[in-house]
Design a protein around this nucleic acid. Structure first.
Length: 279
DNA sequence: ATGGTGGACACTCCA
């Protein structure tokens, strides 16, 4: 038998992925590709577009995710937490905007380094016209973020991670052209100010701990550009926020841009975060 | 200036 060095064994990092997959059933092969390549411990999906009754349970379990918490509806929206680590679903979450449209699930992940509470969000996209008076989708988006802000302001959050497609690119370099996108839904001041308020209820922008705000950082490229990489008109719509107590545990982050070139890709790419418990 | 692409579902919604 090998002699182990007389040191405290370090807990392995927890690898977390967030990804707007834009139809789970259509892109099961891509979820398998992601899982094989990266061996994530926890995957948070948005836009699963599948009812709970039709959720591809056995295929997801076969990838090693035995612990699941998901909420879906027919055709639209839908969120899912897939985990190799045990989960305790959080059940007392609000019904946002007085309608259950499957945009939020939460669970406690029983990770080796300690429990982590995880929130998975899909914020309404908000339509085209950035005017809440004329565009009910934009009004919904603003109200959703306001409600989330109020709810998290009342929570005492520790060891909490909030991820998802928040459909807002808050910083100047979260979009390919700041001045041009100030009038485009996802980067208008009413949205970016609200997202900042929400974040300030107790979270840190974990992705920007790894890439300074002066550098461009995108997670989404429209299907409508012929050559997404050449035009590179991206936006950072997907986010990972953590409570300050987890900042020392943030070990690495990557945006899996190559996934935008996978066969029949989502228009969003996965964001990967390794969380390394302190020894 | 406007339409460009893609998914779901059932002919039109949503992103």
């Amino acid at each position: 038998m090998l002699a182990l060095p007389h040191t405290i064994r370090h807990a392995l990092p927890m690898r977390l992925v967030t990804w707007n997959i834009n139809s789970l059933r259509l892109r099961m092969p891509l979820l398998e590709k992601l899982t094989t390549a990266l061996l994530p411990d926890v995957v948070c999906l948005q836009e699963t577009k599948v009812t709970d009754a039709l959720f591809p349970l056995e295929s997801v379990r076969a990838l090693g995710f035995e612990h699941l918490h998901y909420k879906g509806m027919k055709g639209y929206n839908g969120v899912a937490i897939l985990s190799r680590l045990p989960l305790s679903p959080v059940v007392d979450t609000p019904t946002w905007y007085a309608q259950e449209d499957c945009r939020h699930v939460a669970a406690t992940v029983h990770a080796p380094g300690g429990d982590i509470t995880l929130h998975d969000f899909y914020v309404p996209a908000g339509g085209d016209e950035p005017d809440p008076e004329t565009n009910p989708k934009f009004a919904h988006k603003l109200a959703f973020v306001d409600e989330a802000t109020q709810w998290f302001a009342q929570q005492k959050s520790a060891r909490t991670v909030l991820v998802g497609d928040l459909n807002i690119a808050p910083l100047e370099h979260d979009v390919w052209n700041h001045r041009q996108l100030l009038k485009i839904v996802s980067h208008t001041p009413p949205e970016t100010q609200r997202l900042t308020q929400w974040q300030q209820t107790g979270f840190v922008d974990a992705m920007r701990r790894f890439v300074p705000p002066t550098d461009k950082l995108y997670t989404w490229w429209s299907y409508r550009n012929k050559d997404w990489r050449k035009s590179n008109r991206g936006r950072r719509l997907d986010h990972i926020w953590v409570t300050p107590d987890l900042v020392p545990e943030l070990a690495s982050m990557s945006v899996l841009e190559e996934a935008r070139d996978w066969p029949s890709p989502s228009d969003h790419v996965p964001v990967v975060m390794d969380i390394q418990p302190q020894s």
